[in-house]
Amino acid sequence: MTIYEPAIHFMDVRYSIDNKPIVGPITGSFPSGRITTLVGPSGAGKTTVLKLCNGLLSPDSGEILIDGQSATTFEPTDLRRKVGMALQDAPMVNGTVYDNLALPLRLQKKELPEPDAISWLEDVGLSGDYLHKKASELSGGQRQKVSIARTLINRSDILLMDEITSALDKASRREIESLITRINQKYGTTIIWITHNLEQAISIGDYTWVLISGELIETGDSHILEDPADERVRRFVKGELQ
């Protein structure tokens, strides 16, 4: 088995709210340049793990290394550009598709040239005709594509995806899956993807993390989901834990 450098490494990471443990202690890695899926029952702390990765949250104890460097040594804004995140319901700001694509650069007081915006749109499988369409008029799948393109514009090394296909129909889901695989292959981007669809986790992911009640129960090649070693993971895979 090839050993990959960790893009993100958790070392004994714990996070709690009002003294109630949410995740941890977690020790584990997300391999660089690979697609890792994050699976587990709802309330397992999956979104919290993603937010810890891009610094929207900080651990109470333990350390998170990004490319071997402690997350706390990064400026919060730099860390969030390096570790981009596409949110679950793909929130759009008011305005057109262009306004949404230009947002990451406008936050840095820069402008996005229109031809660049069109090429980003085409990159995620949407034609340039969408550029001046109102964001509120997009379908769920189109919104997700715009959201992914918007995250890509920061040229992040690592992309976090929070259940981005959960509200989509099968056809749109397949399109997003092949899009993410293409991004991973084309740019060598490390992908960390929360999904509740185990079939998707096995087919798309190279690697998987199984979280239950805030703990990292099993980790390894995605195919571990076909024959889990741990009893709790076995029950989760059978659909007995939700």
Binding site: N54, T77, R80, L87, L103
Partner: peptide
């Protein structure tokens, strides 16, 4: 959260 995650202040 969106603006923060895109690197906004």
């Amino acid at each position: 959260e969106l603006i923060l995650s895109l690197g906004g202040t």
